[in-house]
């Protein structure tokens, strides 16, 4: 997988502050945020806060873990 992760703190206006910048070939392609305990059943899952060049979705998907998120982003970048 050609994606690289970089931890980041994100100001979302909520308790969801733990994030990961996702890069492909040195270019930022997505920002993922780990959902806080405020989200009960979804706490700990990764939320697509922002995505670019196909890795965006109006309904902002949530992923069980970072691997699932990266697979989805890669698929989108591959045009699938």
């Amino acid at each position: 997988m050609s994606l690289q992760l970089q931890p980041v703190r994100v100001k979302t206006g909520s308790h969801d502050t733990e994030g990961q910048l996702v890069f492909t070939d040195g270019l930022l392609v997505a920002v993922l945020v780990r959902l806080s305990e405020d989200h009960e059943g979804k706490a700990g899952m990764w939320f697509l806060e922002a995505g670019f060049d196909g890795a965006e979705e109006r309904t902002h998907p949530t992923f069980a873990d970072l691997d699932a998120a990266q697979e989805w982003i890669q698929r989108r970048l591959d045009g699938c």
């Binding site: 909520s14 969801d16 989200h39 979804k42 939320f47 949530t62």
Partner: peptide, 10 residues
């Protein structure tokens, strides 16, 4: 998204 709804409600 439900995530945004939750945040806005808070």
């Amino acid at each position: 998204t439900p995530v945004h709804v939750n945040r806005v409600l808070q």
